[in-house]
Design a protein around this nucleic acid. Structure first.
Lengths: 148, 148
DNA sequence: GAGTTAACTTGCAAATTGCAACTAATAATA
DNA sequence: TATTATTAGTTGCAATTTGCAAGTTAACTC
């Protein structure tokens, strides 16, 4: 069912959206590409949620087939592959932002700074830039925590 | 893993959110409770996506355990059970709205009226009311389509 | 009190996930 | 140039989850 060929869609945009990312991993990959400044398989593997390599491969394949990301090999280093979001993929930013606001409001253990969460979505451009920076910090915190 | 007890969360609000609804069905149930005016098990079963009864039971149980919905028996009809969203559950409205906007923008087969999709999220109250009404129409369309 | 309805439960096959180990191609190093 | 390391995967397999159909139980309806 992962390829969405068997289930018949209802016509509801939420059902359509879930057919793309109604699982535990896809939006984390998109988060990393959108806010984390990541482009390589290896970088995606290093996120704190520790996705398995076979799952990552499957998600990247599906996302490419369905037009949310593009895959090309790095001209400077032919053993690297560069993954980038398409417009359709980048368009998911507001969904992720609302998830951050929800999670940030309701998760007492969130590592995400309240300032990011409470800021209104109005100034989206600045917010996204801050999330990018804030995420690098959070990743550092998690790594430091893991070392202990 | 469905109960989120085994996976360790990263502290990212997106990861936290996906621990609640990172699957194919949970957000459809919340959609029905939030926009569809549904309250009973049977009504949730009748949605066009045709969730299986055992999956619905499992999702309702998880949502109740984790504080997104409340379950009580109908005082007027003791064989009916009423499910309602908590504040935390209702708070997911902006996430669903952004998913509708994304799906509506990118799905050529969407049954959701463009007017709903393109309208800005600013006037959220009216938008939610319209979605409620629009959804009743869409359900009728799908049912009619299925009869053919 | 016979039939119906609502809310589940059970059984089971098929699909998906998660983990660990392995591989192939390219790049860096000695 | 031979050796080692790195990147992007693949493979095998056990455990979990899903999807479908059928069955159950308690409460209403006639």
């Amino acid at each position: 069912m992962s390829d969405g060929r068997k289930r018949r869609l209802s016509g509801c945009p939420i059902d359509y959206a879930l057919d793309f990312f109604g699982d535990r991993w896809t939006l984390l990959v998109i988060r990393d590409l959108l806010f984390g400044g990541k482009r390589h398989f290896k970088e995606l593997m290093e996120s704190p949620e520790r996705i398995a390599s076979n799952i990552l491969t499957a998600r990247l394949k599906k996302l490419e087939e369905r037009g949310l990301i593009e895959r090309r090999s790095d001209p400077d280093n032919r053993k690297q592959v560069i993954y980038t979001l398409t417009d359709k993929g980048r368009d998911l930013a507001p969904v992720l932002v609302e998830m951050v606001r929800w999670g940030g409001r309701h998760d007492p253990n969130s590592l995400c700074p309240k300032s990011v969460v409470t800021r209104l979505t109005r100034d989206n451009e600045r917010l996204l830039a801050d999330m990018r920076a804030g995420m690098a910090d959070a990743v550092r915190t998690v790594k430091a925590r893991a070392r202990r």
